[in-house]
Design a binder for these strands. Sequence first.
DNA 1: AAGCTAACATAATCAGAGG
DNA 2: CCTCTGATTATGTTAGCTT
Length: 408
Amino acid sequence: MEPAKVKNSVTEQVTQCPVISNTPKEGGRRKRTTFSKTQLDILVKTFERDPYPGITVRERLSSLTEIPESRIQVWFQNRRARQLNQKKTEAPTFHKPDYGNKKLTHFSVNLPNRPRITESLASGQSQLNLQPCLPGGNQNVPSQPVQYSEQQLPRLDGHFKSLDSTFRTGTQIQTPSTHLNSAYVSRENQFSLGATGSPSQIQHPVQPLQQHPYYQISFPENYYSDTNLFQAASPLKLGGYQCGQGPQYQAAKENIYRMPVTINCLNSSQGVINEECSYVKANTSHLSKSPVLGHDGGDPQVKMEPAQAPCNIYSPVSSSITLPPSTFANCQVTSQRMLTPLVPLFGQQLKEMIDEFDPRWSYMRNEVLGTGLDLLFESEQNVEQSGGGRSYPFTSGDQSSSCHLGHT
DNA sequence: AAGCTAACATAATCAGAGG
DNA sequence: CCTCTGATTATGTTAGCTT
């Protein structure tokens, strides 16, 4: 066992970041790191959006700030500890969120445990082009499709399977860890990414659907689903309602990376309303281990199929957007291992919904989709500003195009 | 299934930097 | 000197891997 504490203080010159060379001295205590203002700013802003960054985010921060990942981890640990202590000392009055007039309310879900890094993954440099929540969103990261290595696919698979199971829970949602017992949730409407090794689990009640209108958006599936990633064995439930397991749902799960399927809105007080949905039926997935990933040739075609099935997205808004199949008639899916989000016209609405829903999902969306959605949003704005009506751009691989939408 | 290990968490504490 | 905060240690949980 390690003998107590090493208290031989180092009286050398303070190591100033970004010069990171304060590795632990032989048998001594690591020199205290002094973070620069810029570095702290990045860390703080990241912390505000995600107090529990995963390894990829930490590595990303590390490369961005030139702070060793281990120091970043320590920083977040200390930050969490002090924030918890601070909030403990404060009067722990629980403020019930005011859902009355807000269309988006607290929605607690149990997010998945972090995917474990296998040795093969951890040993190498992170190949995930993830988009952490850095200052200014992800604008610091070049916009490019996310590329996944063979090794990352199984990891993502487990990750998204967890997401899938997350949304199969009922109204009583289990939170992944005691992280949620802090005021993060109640005050900031955030929920934590669970991590392995978390303390005992607790449950947090979800605001009853009957009392408060919800946005209950199945974004995790809309964005991250995959044929191989989501293998729902039991009916999906959202807010106590059982979601359809019909062809639309399955199709949604198959096409998450190309586009969100349909935005159906309904009043929660009316229960589930069956609305017409349209979706893209793609026969491949960038994240799937389908044979198409194994070769470079071929251009799997995107097939369009209409669907008539319940769409379990709740919203107080009584309108819906249905995308005609023609929207994607000319889309082609590249067979490269690139996630190119083919988000059609309603990107702005989608983005707003995502962002309002929870910043963390935006973050995860960015992890997978990169800046595609943001770019879409920008392009949509440009179109509107130029009076271009309802023509929306989309991309597929290295090709881009636009289509006119006559949505209702 | 059991054991090992990695990863991550909180909590407590030490100790350096700076006001 | 005091406060803030980075660094360390102890301890616990979870999940993947191996046997």
